[in-house]
């Protein structure tokens, strides 16, 4: 029986001996990760809508085509199922495709390819072929965009086994998690918090942070644990800063990957604080927060002083941009939830 060895990249990267930190944005960190991945392994190809000459509508693929040529970075027809479906065939032949789906709600035409094939081909072929595909999707709201440009589809993709779901919140993770996703022998749905693209950090590249499957504690605290990911991590930190005025000392956990889920870090934090609030932009009903809250109740019940509380958006369609502030979780709503778990 012929078996393809896992075609994932064996390249590794380490921090330079004498790192020189510069101020870069999360978007620039993603761009640097793509440059470095293409340079490290000639099996890596980047394609999607407008990723070539334009460099992507968010410029995440800026300069790739100029540097690596059209065979490594090219514009595709405007067809998301086609983009992901062809990536399946490319990966079967040994390439490592990194594809961009331009906006969250525009990933839905590719839904069948992602859940029926990208996620299941390795299992279907009993491990004979793996699909090291990275599907980049800018997601989330509060950017003032028209309908279909602000959604949070993570629960759809997290529900199907066989792929990883990763979402960075800070520039260092944007670089490191994207490099690791491209190197990963399993497919990764890589959700980019578009509203954080221009968040800055002083960073020396290349940087390697904790691996996929490990959460990070962004702020240590003792009163309650606030679990967040992607665009909501900054919100959770802002809420924690505001909470200190109330005398609350909040711990903020950034999940970084939804599957695999680092329950170890989450449970340890909740057992310390005895209280848990989950924050995300997606609608609350059926959202990822429900999964997290359920796991917390199942595993930390005797440490909990109050039920875990979810803070998502309302269970209505994403509204016009002028109304999105009221629809999305806010610092006040996170603090209100904290108040409910802390009690009078």
């Amino acid at each position: 029986m012929t078996t393809l060895t896992d075609p994932a990249s064996s390249t590794s990267w380490t921090a330079p001996a004498e790192p020189v930190a510069t101020t870069i944005t999360l978007a620039q960190a993603l761009n640097a990760a793509l440059h470095d991945a293409l340079a490290a392994d000639d099996r890596v190809v980047v394609y999607g809508e407008d990723v070539g000459r334009l460099g992507g509508v968010f410029r995440i693929t800026d300069g790739l085509q100029q540097r690596f040529g059209e065979e490594r970075c090219f514009d595709s027809p405007l067809a998301e199922s086609g983009i992901v479906g062809t990536a399946v065939g490319m990966a079967m032949y040994g390439l490592i495709p990194v594809v961009e789906l331009q906006f969250d709600a525009f990933s839905y035409p590719a839904f069948e390819q992602i859940v029926s094939h990208v996620a299941k081909m390795r299992n279907r072929l009993r491990g004979r072929v793996g699909l090291p595909i990275t599907i980049r999707i800018p997601y989330g709201g509060r950017v003032g965009a028209p309908e279909h440009h602000s959604e949070s589809p993570e629960a759809y993709y997290a529900h199907t086994a066989g792929r990883k779901v990763v979402t960075p919140a800070v520039p260092a993770d944007a670089y490191s998690l994207l490099r690791e996703s491209i190197d990963c022998p399993d497919p990764v749905v890589f959700l980019e918090p578009k509203r954080r693209y221009y968040d800055q950090a002083d960073l020396a590249l290349p940087v390697r942070t904790e691996p996929i499957g490990r959460a990070a504690i962004r702020r240590a605290g003792t009163t309650a644990t606030v679990v967040a990911y992607g665009p909501s991590v900054s919100l959770a930190v802002a809420a924690a800063d505001a909470a200190s005025a109330e005398g609350w000392d909040l711990e903020v956990v950034d999940l970084r990957s939804l599957d695999p889920l680092d329950t170890e870090t989450v449970f340890a934090s909740v057992r310390r604080t005895g209280r848990c609030v989950v924050v995300h932009e997606a609608s609350t009903f059926g959202g990822f927060g429900g999964e997290l809250a359920a796991q917390v109740q199942e595993h930390c019940f005797y440490s909990l002083e109050a039920p875990a509380v979810r803070v998502g958006s309302f269970d209505v369609p994403y509204p016009p941009a002028q109304l999105e502030a009221g629809f999305l979780p806010s610092v006040d709503r996170v603090l209100d939830a904290v108040g409910r778990v802390v009690g009078p």
């Binding site: 479906g85 490319m90 032949y93």
Partner: peptide, 11 residues
């Protein structure tokens, strides 16, 4: 059909 096209492009 898309898998077939992708494999052909990769080749």
């Amino acid at each position: 059909a898309l898998h077939a096209v992708g494999l052909a492009m990769a080749a």
